[in-house]
């Protein structure tokens, strides 16, 4: 509780900025005579949005399921392939350049294809989320597991420790900070992937909701949907950042920001 108060207090500038932003938004609508079907005031968004609350909560759950499921699958696959490629010179010369070249194509362009192949259900959305999350995770993992300092490598070799033991006591902890760069990047991609997949073809979820209400000239409800989507995105990213703090509290760059 004390911490929370301290946090609020230390963030007062940001809070003030947000308050100012929403106040400006609220009062510039009547001031500049902006029609409500173009841009609704924040108060109206809250009012109309709360009338649709049940639907919004349910759709948030749908999108959250696609996002989280896809992210976890991408995490497992990305780390697995990342480690395999780091430790196999054959994979490094085959799979690695293949992944690098695919990385260049915008994965989201595959979305319509997946929808047409697999229909409107959960699976195509999860696949698209996996696709947009996998590459940042795998490429950062490869970078992470290949950047152990020369001295540390020589040091553990001179102890005669097994490969398994050095993996868990040195290689893995040394790789975690760079791995988390990929995890965080992927966490941002995840909700974007799920939303776009829903835009293209679905019958539920926040992306579906936003595209339908926008078509019905209801920007107030679209903003309500965007608000929930933002909350979802922040939760996923916040969770990954929290895991980073728990797993690698020693990481210097985080310490610097905290100071």
């Amino acid at each position: 509780m004390k911490k929370f108060i301290k946090w609020i207090f230390s963030g007062w500038m940001l809070i003030l900025f947000f308050a100012g932003f929403f106040l400006f938004w609220e009062y510039s609508i009547p001031l500049f005579d902006i029609p409500r079907y173009i841009l609704p005031a924040p108060s109206e968004i809250v009012l109309k949005g709360s009338a649709d609350l049940d639907k919004l909560i349910y759709y948030t759950g749908v999108t959250a399921l696609e996002t989280v499921l896809g992210y976890i699958i991408a995490l497992i696959l990305g780390l697995g392939f990342g480690i395999a490629i780091s430790f196999s010179s054959i994979l490094r010369r085959t799979l690695y350049p293949f992944f690098v070249s695919i990385e260049m194509t915008p994965k989201i362009a595959f979305a319509p294809l997946f929808i047409s192949w697999f229909g409107f259900g959960l699976m195509p959305k999860v696949i698209i989320v996996v696709l947009v999350c996998f590459f940042p995770i795998v490429l950062n993992a490869i970078l992470a597991f290949n950047s152990l300092s020369n001295e540390l490598t020589l040091f553990y070799q001179s102890t005669g420790a097994s490969r398994l033991k050095t993996f868990f006591t040195i290689r893995l902890p040394a790789a975690l900070p760079q791995c988390f760069v990929g995890f965080k990047y992927a966490a941002i991609n995840a909700t974007v992937g799920a939303t776009i997949a829903e835009f293209i073809g679905s019958d539920k979820g926040l992306g579906f909701y936003i595209s339908i209400v926008t078509g019905n000239m209801r920007p107030d409800l679209a903003f309500a949907g965007i608000f929930f989507l933002t909350c979802l995105g922040l939760s996923v990213f916040g969770f990954v950042t929290m895991m980073e703090k728990i797993l690698i509290p020693w990481h210097i760059s985080m310490k610097r920001i905290n100071k």
């Binding site: 001295e151 540390l152 020589l154 040091f155 001179s158 102890t159 040195i170 990481h251």
Partner: peptide
Amino acid sequence: TDIGIMFQDNTLVP
């Protein structure tokens, strides 16, 4: 493996 070794850059892990 029966040696002690030190380099210019230390082998301490953060």
